[in-house]
Design a protein around this nucleic acid. Structure first.
Lengths: 117, 117
DNA sequence: CAGGATCCCAATGGATACTG
DNA sequence: CAGTATCCATTGGGATCCTG
């Protein structure tokens, strides 16, 4: 009785969260607890200042993480997964493990495919 | 001893596969066995002919699915997950389940966030 | 330190028309 | 049926400069 079509539509919404270049890496970077802006920027290779900000805002809006500002000089801002964010992290863990496990096979498949053409 | 930074870098490659608008939905649409082009187009709401073709080619190149052409008139092309594709499907299943389970919470979080602004 | 603002280019992806 | 080809609007995202 589960309407597959509807599930696919609803899945769309979450793929719009997760299916971007950086969100999953940000969620992953927060897996061991709160992190500061600069720490995240350092931990996530290749992310620009702008995209880190944009991604963090989006995840905050979606209730995946919280942003806590401490009013001191210099500024101190902490990002931390919400309970829902932690469940997302758990749901994505298999995918990230899969990626590490199959990277070599994917490279081989690509080389094989490209050599045929 | 696991180098976290390296894992993140390698994860990048798979997010380039999975972190797009359609790939996960295509993989999902093939979960119950082979499907034809038109069937996929019908099952995946909102996908255009072009994006279905592009996505299928990419997944074929990555070794996630196979494309089988039967030389008959009219043409008959079947797409099917490879063994690796099936493991990907399994790895992404928790994420898709998460999406369905948390959609309402996400909507609420967004409404809440937007109302503050 | 943690961004905001702006500029700009490249890639994404939709619509449409055509075809073996 | 299962695409290919083309055009085009939108968006993603990097670089740079500025600030409380």
């Amino acid at each position: 009785m589960t309407p597959r079509q509807d599930d696919a539509c609803r899945t769309r919404v979450v793929l719009d969260i997760v299916g971007d270049k950086w969100s999953l890496l940000v969620v992953r970077a927060l897996r061991d607890g709160p992190r500061r802006f600069t720490e995240l920027k350092r931990d996530i290779a290749g992310i620009s200042q702008r995209m880190l900000t944009v991604t963090l805002r989006g995840l905050e809006r979606d209730g995946i993480l919280t942003r806590t500002v401490h009013n001191v000089m210099p500024p101190h801002v902490c990002y931390e997964l919400t309970p829902m964010g932690r469940t997302l992290r758990e749901a994505t863990a298999p995918l990230l493990e899969w990626s590490v496990a199959h990277l070599a096979a994917i490279d081989a498949a690509r080389a094989d495919y490209d050599s045929r053409a």
